[in-house]
Amino acid sequence: MSTLEIKDLQVSVETEDGPKEILKGVTLTINDGETHAIMGPNGSGKSTTAYAIAGHPKYTITGGSVTLDGKDLLEMSPDERARAGLFLAMQYPVEVPGVSMANFLRTAKTALDGEAPKLRTWVKDVNGALDRMNLDPAFSQRSVNEGFSGGEKKRAEIAQLDLLDPKVAILDEIDSGLDIDALKVVSDGINAFASREGKGVLLITHYTRILRYVKPDFVHVFVDGRIAESGGEELAEELEANGYAKYIGAAV
């Protein structure tokens, strides 16, 4: 079982002109087995939602709550949130020079499980996850995200999702910068994860392209720090045809 419940989430960031409110009350529940897509124009607060839930220090929560299976995520440090079952695939995965993917993945898995993974099966698991993302086994000897192409970074994020097996995955613009072949590989990975027992997916995207391969149960349109409209898959099709013009007009 896994339920991510976001209630009236309000978030601000520190700017030179003082705090700026970015999320103005977001309410959203992701139940077991559901895939939600958040769409919206640039600056509408999509990524802020992802990072605020994951606990990035840049964002200040000014109101509302976020719980995972009833546990208050906002009380937790970023690593505690991950250990509670949250995963964030980042739009720009960070380079960590000198730390091999193998070392990083093993350290993360050990932290999540509370014990080191069994050596023999683990190497097989890692190679399998890399292979499913069309990444060579030698990839695990490279430094985390260092010198990876844009597509390799995104595929490595999904390989991590596969291996670390969280309850809820937030994928922030996982489709940006991918060519069509890489998009299919990444989508297959997301679908494989979503089909596991009791998983939730929150897919944040600027484009409808990925929604041809990852079918969302719900689509939410973000405008100016709020959900302007929610619907099913058909909402994405409408956005594909008409864009965000009507929402932006309404917000102004």
């Binding site: 690593d79 991950a82 960590v96 020079p97 000198g98 070392n103 350290t107 932290a111 670390l164």
Partner: peptide
């Protein structure tokens, strides 16, 4: 933040970064 978002505690994340450095 990247390391911690994968469940790695802060002290361990710092150790990893220096180790990598």
């Amino acid at each position: 933040f990247y390391l911690r978002s994968r469940g790695i505690p802060e002290s361990e994340a710092r150790r990893l970064v220096v180790h990598g450095f």
